[in-house]
Nucleic acid binder design. Sequence first.
DNA 1: CATTTTTTTGCAAGTATTTTCTAATTTCTA
DNA 2: TAGAAATTAGAAAATACTTGCAAAAAAATG
Lengths: 263, 263
Amino acid sequence: MLFSLVSQTERIYSMLKEERQKYILDQVHLHHRVLLNDLSDSLNVSIDTVRRDVKELDAEKKLKKVHGGATSFGFMTFTKDDGNIYLKSKKISIAEKTVSLLSDGQVILMSGGTTNMEVAKLIPKKLVLTVFTPSLHVAMALLDHENVEVIFLGGKLLHDAKFAVGGTVVNALSQLRVDLCILGTGYLDAKFGLTEFDWEVIQVKQAMIRAAKKTIILTVSDKLHSVQKYKTCDMSAVHTLVTELDPSDPLLDSFRPFELVLV
Amino acid sequence: MLFSLVSQTERIYSMLKEERQKYILDQVHLHHRVLLNDLSDSLNVSIDTVRRDVKELDAEKKLKKVHGGATSFGFMTFTKDDGNIYLKSKKISIAEKTVSLLSDGQVILMSGGTTNMEVAKLIPKKLVLTVFTPSLHVAMALLDHENVEVIFLGGKLLHDAKFAVGGTVVNALSQLRVDLCILGTGYLDAKFGLTEFDWEVIQVKQAMIRAAKKTIILTVSDKLHSVQKYKTCDMSAVHTLVTELDPSDPLLDSFRPFELVLV
DNA sequence: CATTTTTTTGCAAGTATTTTCTAATTTCTA
DNA sequence: TAGAAATTAGAAAATACTTGCAAAAAAATG
């Protein structure tokens, strides 16, 4: 069983080389890996062309070429991504919607990722919150807010994601019962649920979901309908889905059968 | 007899070789031991392929191949660092002396403060360490080092110092027994010992000292012979004192009666 | 514009890598 | 020590990569 990871957006018009390479980079950063065949399909060019593009990008150290495809260097959620203004504005839009869901006195859990970073930055200065997080960056951003009590969920830190994982975190989470859990990254599909590519992160996220009364998923529409290696949870565990799209957007149709709030 | 541990995750799409190998490494690190058959099952590839992958990873020293499967193994590395001489600030001078006290494979505790930050930055890239810290900044700096395993001691974060304090930290520390504790800030006096002005920080530092076989104090000479409100420990609890001064400097005379190493 | 130059693209034949399979060992374990 | 399980090796099949080359597309030129 083979599933294409590349989003279904069809490219009709012919693309310039530069455009194409940017698309390839976007896909790599978004999905952390791409197959040359998928790229060839969605770009409507021969596999040779894609191969040449990837080879060039590899030479420029913008991605890592591997047999059959390409992968990104680590999962640099905090550096590479910010070059993409398009994605960033989507994320800010998501963050704004998310912040509007928060209210004074709540105790919440926040995972890492760029989207959650935007949420952390956008939290109103006067909002009183208690936030637990295993993400160094999110913790750092939250400490700017006088009225937010920040509790770091300690544990072994992942070098690239700057995120705590492991038994300590999961254990600490097992003793918590919070109002809200905000999961910032991940891939969402109606059938397969929430999936990720990092196994250790999955463990933490599962523990986060268990520790919260409600779970909010934040995701840019590009990551909808795509599936990764490991499964975090079913759609049924999700209470609210926040995307940059209008809640009535047809792209969200496949999620409507579930009992969840679309924002 | 070993049980099959791998299975919960459904294979959804075709994997690139590199991805597969990362998966194998994940599993090995998680379960400490994996069976080739289990891997073959969960990866949906022939046992030959898994065997070849494991063989390659073994050649790269990323895991140890054993009959029927693979196991993870502890660290094995070597180090050689060089020293350059140029104009340096007091803190950098202290940091350099401190780094020279470290050796491969040690498990250490580091507090916060700017001096400790310099230590974190100066740690040689090849040095293999496990570092526990309650300081966001130190953790961040340490994460630049591939060979340093960073474990954050989570807890309530102080907004200004970006330092975790409280019962969680003290509790976690009470279950540790490490080689070395490096305390980066504080005021030192022969008669009154190590003193601080933040009560919550004191609690954490005391727990750190208790958790370590040896305690190293780093302090610039300006902070010698001064006393603060709260006491962390007596001079007798200190094993090594690092300042920017020459060990024979008269300013250090009052500390000589104690059984401690001056660096 | 028309023409030349340069770049880009797709094709094809040959090469290399990866994966699977079979069968003959070797190693483990009861 | 016999039988089961794991390993090795060799070959075939599938997939991916390289290279050279010619056609097509862009860009530059007069």
